[in-house]
Write a protein that binds this DNA or RNA. Structure first.
Lengths: 78, 78
DNA sequence: TATTATAATTCCCGAACGGGAATAAAAATT
DNA sequence: AATTTTTATTCCCGTTCGGGAATTATAATA
C-alpha cells in the first residue's frame, strides 16, 4: 500500500478521508473488524472506505468519523 | 419549510449539510437545476441532499460543497 | 389573488451499494 | 522462513441509489 501523507488542511478526495480513517483506526488499536462491529456494518465497507471508494454512503462515513473521535467542519473557502 | 439554524461548529447530521447546501446555493443565486447542471447530476439528487438524505454518495456531496466554495475539514475532537 | 418560478414528490428502471462469507493477499510477529 | 493476524478481493443477491420526466406542492412576484 502506498503510504500517503495525511491531509492537514482541507479534504479534497475520498482517498484522503480513507487515509485519515485508516490512520486513526490503527492509532486506537482497532482492526477493520473492530470498527465494523462498532459501526454495525461490514468489514468490506471499512475496507472500501479506507481505500478511497467515493460512492460510499455519506451518513456511514460520518458515523465512522464520529466513532473515531473526528470532527467534521464545513466553512466558506477563504 | 422549517427554518433551521445553520451549524457554526461541527457537522453532526446529513440534515445540517443539507441546510448548508441550500443556504449557500441560494446565497449565490442558484436554483437546484443550476447546481445540478454544474455538478452534472439531477435535480432530485440536489433535493435529496438538501433534505437531509443520509444515504447519498459521499463523493457527490463533496463535489457539491466544492462547487459552492465550501471547505471540508476533519480534525481530532478537542 | 392570480401567475409564474422554484422545489418536492412520485414513477420506472438500470446500475451499484453493501452485507455475509469465503478466498487470496499482505503484514506482522515469533 | 513459518505462522498467525489483518486486510483486500470476489461472489451471490437483496436493497436502494439516482437519472429523467411528469406531477404536485410551495414560494415568490406582480
Amino acid at each position: 500500500m502506498t503510504t500517503e501523507k495525511l491531509p492537514n488542511g482541507n479534504i479534497e478526495s475520498a482517498k484522503q478521508v480513507g487515509n485519515l480513517v485508516a490512520f486513526h483506526r490503527k492509532e486506537q488499536g482497532l482492526t477493520q473488524a473492530d470498527l465494523a462491529g462498532l459501526a454495525q456494518t461490514g468489514t468490506r465497507f471499512i475496507s472500501d472506505l479506507e481505500n478511497g471508494k467515493g460512492t460510499v454512503q455519506f451518513d456511514k462515513v460520518m458515523l465512522i468519523l464520529n466513532l473515531l473521535g473526528l470532527d467534521i467542519r464545513i466553512t466558506e473557502r477563504s
